[in-house]
Design a protein around this nucleic acid. Structure first.
Lengths: 144, 144
DNA sequence: ATAGTTTACGATAATTTTGTCCGGAATTAA
DNA sequence: TTAATTCCGGACAAAATTATCGTAAACTAT
């Protein structure tokens, strides 16, 4: 479904968000300790999410990653997926054809339109804020 | 969603099925010509689908691949996916955690249970026969 | 038997994805 | 200014996936 890079990215952002709720910046090693992800690789991924303006970074002592509190409710899971994996989850034909549409459907097209729309709707309506609050309340877990 | 290997496998089986409807065996080069897939790789994949008893193969002149007509309505897309990609599409946590359940859900768990169930239902109820007939009738397309 | 056809299979190669390492740049604080 | 901290970015390495090739094995028909 998602690449590993994307999964690491989502987890990292959710963890950073839980800390941003309390106004705290977090360092990369703190992030990966709490998500079970490889440090250097996660750093790269966060780097690209910084460029996509999803998260802020600061170098130096007391530096780290942080998400503006106003943004927490605006960032959707779909934003992260789009930044890392692109739109392929939604757009790409499930059998890999370049041309596949209602007019010229591949054998699986009709079935997958439905599933992909549901997936898109889910990703586009789930905010980082929702997930972070869930984690803080102990209802959702970032490790396993 | 699916690996390339799995996509090639599904396409190949559908094409073989369209020919099996008419009692014809098909050779590997015929398969890939009609699916746009790489020959040697597709051959490997079909080899493993033979072991999973999804398709039959015959060496020698007039050999090739064929699916028993009674089986056409019994083989589901899920059988092919299971044989090649395994159950990960349904089972695996979307964020990659080993432990992720209703009791201890990852942040995305609840959303994805729904989507994965829908996906499973779709794959388990779509038969190769349905897709092959659709292709024969010119309603569904195996290239693009 | 023999020649021709076709899949099976192991070795190998190319590509993509995942992951590491390290020096440099930015920042802070003393 | 200096030293410590932290992210950044490029080179590199490992692993997984995708893909090719050549030979062997199975089969058919003559």
């Amino acid at each position: 479904m998602f690449s590993k890079a994307c999964k690491y990215g989502i987890k990292a952002i959710i963890y950073i968000a839980t800390q941003s709720l309390e106004g705290k910046r977090v360092k990369i090693n703190d992030v990966v300790d709490n998500c079970g992800s490889p440090e250097a690789f996660t750093g790269k991924i966060l780097g690209s999410l910084v460029k996509y303006d999803i998260v802020h970074s600061h170098t130096g002592p007391n530096g780290g990653f942080q998400i503006e509190s106003k943004k927490l409710k605006r960032i959707k899971v779909s934003d992260i997926v789009l930044a890392i994996d692109g739109a392929s989850v939604y757009n790409e034909c499930s059998l890999g054809f370049g041309i596949c549409s209602n007019d010229r459907p591949c054998p699986m097209h009709t079935s997958f339109v439905k599933i992909k729309n549901e997936l898109r709707r889910t990703l586009e309506t789930t905010t980082i804020y929702d997930l972070a609050v869930g984690c803080k309340n102990g209802l959702l877990f970032l490790t396993g």
